[in-house]
Design a protein around this nucleic acid. Sequence first.
DNA 1: TGCAAAATCATCCAAAAGGATGACGACATC
DNA 2: GATGTCGTCATCCTTTTGGATGATTTTGCA
Lengths: 155, 155
Amino acid sequence: MKRHVLIFGLVGGLLIATLQYTEYRFVVIEHSVELYSALVAILFATFGIWLGLRITRRRETIVVRKVLVPASGPGAEPASAFAPNTAQQQSLGITARELEILTLIARGLSNREIATQLFVSENTVKTHCSRAFDKLGAARRTQAVQRGKELGLLP
Amino acid sequence: MKRHVLIFGLVGGLLIATLQYTEYRFVVIEHSVELYSALVAILFATFGIWLGLRITRRRETIVVRKVLVPASGPGAEPASAFAPNTAQQQSLGITARELEILTLIARGLSNREIATQLFVSENTVKTHCSRAFDKLGAARRTQAVQRGKELGLLP
DNA sequence: TGCAAAATCATCCAAAAGGATGACGACATC
DNA sequence: GATGTCGTCATCCTTTTGGATGATTTTGCA
């Protein structure tokens, strides 16, 4: 929790130190200060955005709604309204995060891409994968996707 | 969760106060660049966080969980009624064999399993895979499956 | 407040998958 | 008979995945 602030402080300090160093090295010329400011500003704005996104990640408001569905084959429903079969999900003990990663797998993303998109490490993604595969009884991601669709977990 | 932002803001404020204080205390001239940098950095980091939160407004994802009570589960459609989109297949130059292997991939089989099932070597399967992926513009088998379904090549 | 579940990250290792390239035979077509 | 496509197989090398395990942090809830 405090790690964020710590990292922030550390990066800030490092950056400033670097900047100082480079200033002492060369350009003490006219426009160095402005360039500085711009550089620092851009860097920290980016960092701030990243930090902001990271810190306030996923807040979910869960609305459980029961819906009676007339018999229909998969894909017969309006494409944008997919609701994962929570009964199956729960009975298999698949967590929300795991399901999230499963859907990204189904979209054809690699572990690395998933990691980037979710702001976590590749290792984490792999862990989730393994657990999900276990729970689905799958040995491969393609198999997991297939099972997931069978069970109504994936669109 | 909001504690992060609070702590961050607090630290930022303290830092600014400290900087101002120290600035008033001594060297206004010598270290003005560093102080300036730090201030700009902090300001823009804060701004970045604010901006990050603003542009990605909906940090709260409303998850509507529908509990399906279907009269029939997925797979209710006549299982054998799928006809691959031959137009797409031809326009992409995907051969029958390649499509065959794609469907097996979509079922979650490994290359080895596919090889066994089709009485060919694993190398052959890999070759077909590569060609098919090429034609589909996919880098992974999961992606190929996804594309295949999009294009109506796979059920 | 304290515990259990979930999420995160890491490391080591093995297997699978993917890319590039070359080759060979069967077949159809011009 | 030359040409082109398809299916088959191989080798070499890199990247990706998956498995097993342990540890730490966050979070939700009793």
